[in-house]
């Protein structure tokens, strides 16, 4: 358990009460172990442009084979979830908290890319058992600069509300077969421009409720999230990031997808509990 100092919780939420987020049909994909071994459920949250499909490719089945009930949600306007023009970061956060509260037991939230930003906001509205931020894009001007440097042509339109276009070298390592890479790229969608702007504005998340332990992992060769950003993200939660050299931003789709997932699950098994 941590000491007695706590970041300030804000308990008056007039705007959330008076203007609740409108419901949108959600896609949740899952793989559940045949025998319930008492492991906590995992809820994977894809980043902007990705859908639950990104985790259905490898991670859900593998997590289930190791005893963890595994779920992936598509944020509204992504994957198989309902289209949602004008979606905000608050709406995405709402989708994650709703999906988590629907699970039978207290869940571990795993956010990838900008999904990690959504998870960090969701942690303020749901006491997760633990959280894992995978190649986290936590927003703010630093995110924009890094993206511009890595891919100026694809990023510039996004700064003016256009679509963010990521190219193959940003997302995947060299070993991923071309056909797979093309298949994944073809499935990419986009986040709403309001949410995109909010990502760049980078309003910090409110403090997490219930002291979840947090793990950060990523690749030093990620061309969306520079190593400094990984270290910064991990530092916020008082730890060092776990690194997987040679992999691209989309660790869950890359050829060596199993290594980071196994590390994540090992951490959960060893995790002594709440801080």
């Amino acid at each position: 358990m941590s000491g007695t100092t706590e970041e300030r919780v804000r308990i008056l939420r007039g705007r959330e009460w008076a203007h609740p987020v409108r419901a949108a049909r959600r896609e949740v994909l899952s793989a559940v172990p045949e025998l319930d071994e008492g492991c906590p459920p995992l809820l994977f949250v894809p980043g902007f442009g990705h859908g639950a499909w990104a985790f259905a490719e490898h991670w859900l089945e593998h997590a289930a084979s190791r005893g963890f009930p595994a779920y992936a949600v598509s944020l509204r306007g992504h994957g198989g979830s309902e289209p949602a023009p004008g979606a905000t970061l608050r709406a995405y956060t709402h989708d994650v908290v709703q999906a988590a509260a629907e699970l039978p037991r207290q869940a571990v939230l795993v956010g990838h890319g900008a999904g990690a930003l959504v998870v960090s906001h969701a942690l303020a509205r749901y006491p997760a058992r633990a959280a894992v931020l995978v190649a986290p894009v936590l927003g703010g001007p630093a995110t924009a600069l890094a993206a511009l440097r890595a891919n100026p042509v694809g990023t510039l339109p996004a700064l003016f509300g256009g679509a963010l276009r990521l190219h193959r070298r940003q997302l995947f390592g060299r070993e991923l077969p071309d056909a797979d890479a093309r298949r994944h790229l073809a499935r990419l969608g986009r986040a709403d421009r309001r949410a995109q702007w909010q990502l760049l504005a980078g309003r910090p998340a409110e403090p997490a409720v219930g002291h979840p332990p947090v793990l950060v992992l990523g690749s030093p060769d990620d061309r969306v999230v520079p190593p400094a950003a990984l270290t910064r993200a991990a530092g916020r939660y008082g730890a060092a990031p776990l690194l997987f050299p040679g992999m691209g931003h989309d660790l869950m789709l890359d050829t060596r997808w199993q290594e980071p997932l196994d590390a994540l699950l090992d951490w959960l098994v060893k995790e002594p509990g709440r801080r």
Partner: peptide, 15 residues
């Protein structure tokens, strides 16, 4: 109504 009634860290279902 729902937003005023649910616990602040465990929402009632959207449906």
């Amino acid at each position: 109504s729902r937003p005023f009634t649910q616990f602040p860290d465990f929402p009632m279902p959207d449906s």
